[in-house]
Design a protein around this nucleic acid. Structure first.
Lengths: 273, 273
DNA sequence: CCTCCCGTTCCGCAGATCGGAACGTCCTCC
DNA sequence: GGAGGACGTTCCGATCTGCGGAACGGGAGG
């Protein structure tokens, strides 16, 4: 049988609505993820009601989802009737995930080399379609290693790694990101779609991205793209420091160093696969 | 307080058969987690068939689970017909989880202080019921920071943090862990349940745990327990180094330092909540 | 004491999820 | 070069899971 039965051909037919999407299948998983995504650095502990509000799910449904997530260790709950937090198992899995990224290993040496050569904080980040997720970081001084140890994921439109990655993404990806909104973090954040596209064009031409206080005032960063073995830009590396430690006239030279190291990682990735 | 109404009493009412478990509810989530848990540091990329074998799920079911996990970003797939790996979103969530643990923040200073004072590598780990999940690490030298940067989760029965935590868990937890098996990593690994229970008794008496090459030959560690604000041991901290850098006669003195720092973290946790 | 809000539990219906079976493809082995 | 096998993918109907409205219980506040 085979079926051409349904096919969507363009005729548009009956087909009431068979979500031809191909998108996702497990409805419940989508809900679960939506629940997990309510949590963030600023919302570390949420109550049932709060999660209901954010997800729009009915109370009993949410309660069941939460209970299930708790039972598998994805969430934790203080006491009986206490708010929920992300659980340890999630961290453990995330960590295994991290270690399974080739780039995390291949970039180790290069990241340190860049830190030493540039004398600034180094960030290595991957792109998840919307944000730049930092997967490695090196600070210029030892003591500096802990201040904000846990890695963060930064918006793509206002950081140097983010823009460096974004500049080489497909139109489709860029559109989707723009539609999701370009929140303003500082007066200098590029929140206009047109301006952002122009900026990305400049970055493509220039080969690297600059963030001049667009995410955090007074912080200047230089970022360059990293490609996987198929040539797609999937990550970026950057150096960042206070504006006064990174004068404008140094940028071209520093950028050369950053780009060089980014390319080195790209090559590592190509050679080892 | 609250009701003794039903509780377990022994009356045992009707209770026909409805799996009163209270365990988990979302069957699909349990399956999903089982799939995710197929991955580990050594199995970083798995094919559909491999996952079928490990989980025992039929092929079509597994395929659907994998596709769904991929669609939400919990898994990634190289090309079309390539093996699966844990995805970036999992890492991002795990990271948010990490940052939401009070202990991760409260222990930051103490961990560094211990590193400086003891001159050895420091591990801070939490307990997930079976393993000690390392959530923070500090190395004595700068350059040392990268060798095995990503944090690991270690078996509880053969590491100093693990044993330090395990010693103060309920019989129930210990039983469960023993039943899960005590794999032997080195000739010195304690894999006999009776011997392990004796060791734990010694640890309780002594106040700290020693791992003398039980996980990795030639590696010696000293670990002490950390309690949450309710007094439960939920984490541990340890120092570790090559046997020759940590002679037996130094152990008592070093242990005092470790225990002191562990207690300091315990107090931090109590004070800030 | 009454009220409101929140978390929890219950239960019957509906539709999501399951998995056997068939299909296509890429191997390897003969 | 053809047969056979291993693997991934798709389909579809029966079944059982997960849904969510409604009711319950308890705690805070008035």
């Amino acid at each position: 049988m085979i079926d051409h039965s349904g096919e969507d051909a363009g005729t548009g037919k009956l087909a009431g609505k068979p979500p031809r999407t191909g998108d996702e299948q497990l409805k419940s998983l989508v809900k679960l993820v939506k629940v997990l995504e309510c949590f963030s650095l600023s919302d570390r502990a949420l109550s049932l009601a709060e999660i209901c509000n954010r997800t729009g799910f009915p109370r009993s449904t949410t309660h069941r989802l939460l209970a299930s997530l708790r039972d598998v260790g994805f969430l934790e709950q203080g006491k009986e009737r206490d708010r929920y937090r992300l659980g340890l198992k999630l961290f453990a899995l995330g960590n295994t995930a991290l270690s399974s990224f080739d780039i995390h290993r291949e970039a180790a040496v290069t990241v340190n080399s860049l830190r030493r050569l540039a004398g600034h904080t180094v960030h290595l980040a991957m792109f998840d379609g919307f944000r730049a997720v930092v997967i490695r970081r090196a600070d210029p001084t030892v003591e500096n290693t802990t201040p904000s140890t846990f890695l963060e994921n930064a918006p793509a439109h206002c950081t140097s790694v983010g823009k460096a990655i974004l500049a080489w993404q497909s139109e489709e990806v860029i559109d989707r990101l723009i539609e999701a909104g370009l929140p303003k973090f500082t007066p200098d954040t590029i929140s206009d779609p047109v301006a952002l596209r122009e900026e990305l064009a400049i970055i493509r031409e220039r080969g690297y991205a600059i963030d001049d206080g667009e995410h955090l005032p007074g912080l200047r960063c230089i970022g360059a793209p990293i490609r996987n073995f198929q040539g797609q830009v999937i990550a970026g590396i950057s150096i960042s420091g206070p504006t006064w430690q990174m004068p404008k006239e140094n940028i071209p030279d520093l950028a050369k160093v950053v780009v060089y190291h980014a390319n080195q990682i790209t090559e590592n990735l190509a050679n080892n696969r």
